[in-house]
Simulated assay, not measured.
Amino acid sequence: MSEVFVRVAVRIRPLLPKEVLHNHQVCVRMVPGSAEVMLGSDRLFSFDHAFGPTASQDEVYESCVQPLVESLVDGYNATVFCYGQTGSGKTYTLGGGSLDEDGGIIDCVAQDVFSLLGEKEKHSDGVEATVRVSYMELYREELRDLLELHTVHKELHIREDEKGNTGDEKEKNHKNE
């Protein structure tokens, strides 16, 4: 795996029917043939990946997440972090739309992880894997586990040491050993 630790992608969603009904205008456009986005008529932003309103779930997954899954099965950690305002399309990208549409990133990751682990098991004796998954929502500094049905919102406490490093107590204790 290359030494790039963070990649940033942007996905521009189409206008919602409600927005079309109220004559809202598109203000974010893709620059053709690039990973750049234009805001308004003069503000240009560059990303590692950029997807327009017609991009498919598969296109986003294959470009941004599938390489992470392949590295994950080789023993690397991977995180997909979705950020944006309410209504920007995070849930759609992660979870997919209705049952008639393609699944989102979560569906594709689950399928690929277990498929790749199955392939590794076929070609190796005694390979054992443990899969741990987190699906968290951070909203207004409250953290919620989306895999736990009856989770109460928990206040997020970010701990910082005297050098400005962040992490939880368990992580800090491990580093001191």
Rank of each mutant, 00 (worst) to 15 (best):
H123E: 11
A50G: 03
V109N: 05
G104D: 12
H150S: 13
E162I: 03
A50D: 01
S34T: 15
G33F: 04
D125R: 08
G89C: 05
P53W: 02
T151L: 00
E128F: 02
G33C: 06
E128A: 12
V37W: 05
V8M: 12
E59N: 06
N176E: 14
L143E: 02
E59W: 01
V109Q: 07
L117I: 15
A9I: 04
I105S: 02
R29S: 14
D161P: 05
D145F: 08
A129C: 15
V60I: 15
L44N: 08
A50K: 02
K120I: 00
Q57N: 11
K163T: 10
S88H: 08
V28D: 00
V60N: 03
K122M: 12
Y92L: 07
V65C: 13
T130Y: 05
T91C: 03
P53L: 01
S41K: 14
D58P: 00
K170N: 06
L94T: 13
D74F: 01
Y92N: 07
F47C: 03
K172L: 11
L149M: 10
T86P: 01
D100G: 06
S2H: 05
M136C: 13
L44R: 15
Y135V: 08
H24A: 09
E171T: 13
T91Q: 09
D161T: 05
N165G: 01
L116R: 10
D48L: 02
H24Y: 12
E162A: 11
V37H: 12
E171M: 11
R144I: 11
V127D: 01
G84K: 09
G95T: 08
A55I: 05
G96Q: 10
G95L: 08
K163M: 11
S98G: 14
